[in-house]
Nucleic acid binder design. Structure first.
Length: 464
RNA sequence: GACCCUUUCAUCUAGUGGCCAAGGAUGCUGCGUUUUCAUCGCAGUCACAGAGGUUCAAAUCCUCUAAGGGUCGCCA
């Protein structure tokens, strides 16, 4: 039988990285088996739906490149279908109407909590045959088993037994007739023929309820895999306060989707000592049974390291495209590949890389104070003038030509490399760090190099 | 409070009774390469939550304790 997995978000907000990881795990499981990956939107609570959130989730999927099969299923469009199953359960006496009001329910809950009990519905209308109270729109509850145990055979956590008493006759249809979450999930997973349900372990307690539905309707349950949560760097639950939890925020911050995916796949899953996984390798090697039981913590340093790795490996043409979103357009630049060669190892994100590139392509807007202090000494101006005259006279072109010019200067004048290197660097880039000087000069060309040196002398020369 | 889950370096993890005086990666520190920074290379740093068992032998099996987390809705 072919494998079918799904990702089933509710459209109440953007896609966060925890959600993306479970989506990735589900996607990989399907792709590994050449199966099917479906997307389903859990929007049964009509009051909480958001078009915008829906679109945001789809955008995030698109950015990271997770493809889904078939049409997106919207639960809000399947209410008639769910109704049929509710009627069937009612007919078969596997579900019943409950006339308790919200107020009565609240009172019951409070009393139970006060007594130190686990709050649960007391099944008072389970076998009710009398005259229903007037003016109450009933909810519909399922008859859950009252004794025995419900067993979850989880692909990650192993066998989990839950006492039947823990699962009450939960509501499957609200008083307005709309079906509830646990009910529709079970129906849809069954009808969509989902074979492997991979979801966050915050859903672990929903599983016995869904198993009750499967049982009542005679469906065969799928395999379940409950993945532990991702915590923040302090080991606490990831929340919006922890910075970028929105997947699209990573795009804005200059992360590559392959880095994010590689980072996420290693959170709770591994394959020996391997750290770097292409999408193809992930698909080949991933098995949900290898997912770890314990929660893992988000770690920005590792993500940054991976991002740097993928930036280094990115072909020029693709990098040039990506950089456009960060205010750098190298597409018509004759020295584009030289610029990237000089800078790509100096940026952990596209934002940083764009900054490094601008250092070269734009005339320094300011000169770093500390750098100036350190680099500009008494004889600096004279030295720079000498160097720039040599450039004018010899017209070097290649990186090597420029290197030779520097080499000759330090040899003939018997000075250290730093003597010219530092002030030159400050003059050209405005900063003490960055790409190699010969590289930069070859990119700028003689004229621009001289112009920047002269400008720096004009701005800084008189100060010391 | 009840029920359930989890527990190896700071972090992600390898590990399913002997190959483990615990391996890899990130981070951090140092050294080397580099005119600088970064990259890269090398080295160092750092862990089996605790206590009892079982066994010739335990990170691995059992029991208890502790700590962390999840869930208890006419939300999903």
């Amino acid at each position: 039988m072919s494998v079918v997995t799904r990702f089933a978000p509710s459209p109440t907000g953007y896609l966060h990285i925890g959600g993306l990881r479970t989506a990735l795990f589900s996607w990989l499981t399907a792709r590994h088996h050449g199966g099917t990956f479906r997307l389903r939107i859990e929007d049964t609570d009509l009051s909480r739906n958001s078009e915008e959130a829906m679109a945001a989730i789809l955008r995030a999927f698109d950015w990271v490149g997770l493809s889904y099969d078939g049409e997106v299923v919207y639960q809000s469009q399947r209410f008639d279908l769910y109704r049929e199953y509710i009627d069937r359960l009612l007919e078969e006496d596997k579900a019943y109407r409950c006339y308790m009001t919200r107020e009565e329910l609240d009172a019951l809950r409070e009393a139970q909590i006060a007594r130190g009990e686990r709050p649960r519905y007391d099944s008072r209308y389970r076998d009710f045959t009398g005259t229903p109270p007037a003016g109450v729109n009933p909810v519909i509850r399922i008859k859950a088993p009252q004794e025995g145990t419900i067993v979850i055979d989880d692909g990650i956590k192993g066998r989990i037994e839950i006492a039947a008493e823990e699962v009450d006759d939960f509501i499957i249809a609200r008083s307005d007739g709309t079906p509830t979450y646990n009910f529709v999930v079970a129906i849809d997973d069954a009808l969509m023929e989902i074979t492997d349900v991979i979801r966050g372990d915050d859903h672990l307690y929903n599983t016995p309820k869904q198993l009750v539905i499967y049982g009542a309707l005679g469906f065969t349950p799928p395999r379940f895999y409950h993945v532990a949560m991702i915590n923040n760097e302090q080991g606490k639950k990831l929340s919006k306060r922890d910075g970028a939890t929105d997947v699209m925020e990573y795009k804005a911050r200059g992360f590559l989707p392959e880095a994010l995916l590689n980072f996420l796949v290693r959170l709770g899953w591994s394959h020996g000592d391997q750290e770097i996984f292409s999408l193809e390798e992930m698909i080949e090697l991933f098995d949900p049974r290898d997912i770890n039981k314990s929660a893992s913590s988000y770690n920005l340093d590792k993500l940054l390291w991976l991002n740097a790795h993928y930036i280094k490996a990115k072909p020029d043409a693709e990098l040039i495209e990506l950089l456009k979103d960060f205010g750098v357009d190298l597409s018509d630049h004759p020295k584009a590949s030289a610029i990237l060669a000089a800078t790509r190892e100096r940026g952990k994100t596209l934002v940083e890389l764009a900054g490094q590139i601008r250092l070269i392509t734009e005339v320094p807007a300011a000169y770093d104070e500390k750098a100036v202090k350190k680099a500009f000494k008494e004889d600096t101006v004279e030295l720079l003038k000498d160097f720039s005259f040599r450039l004018y006279k010899n017209q070097p072109e290649s990186q090597e030509d420029f290197h030779v010019e520097m080499q000759r200067l330090v040899e003939e004048r018997e000075i250290g490399f730093g003597k010219i290197g530092m002030p030159l660097r400050v003059s050209l880039l405005g900063s003490m760090t960055g790409a190699g000087m010969d590289e930069v000069m070859a990119i700028l060309g003689v004229d621009e190099t001289i112009a920047r040196i002269e400008r720096a002398i004009g701005e800084l020369g008189v100060r010391n």
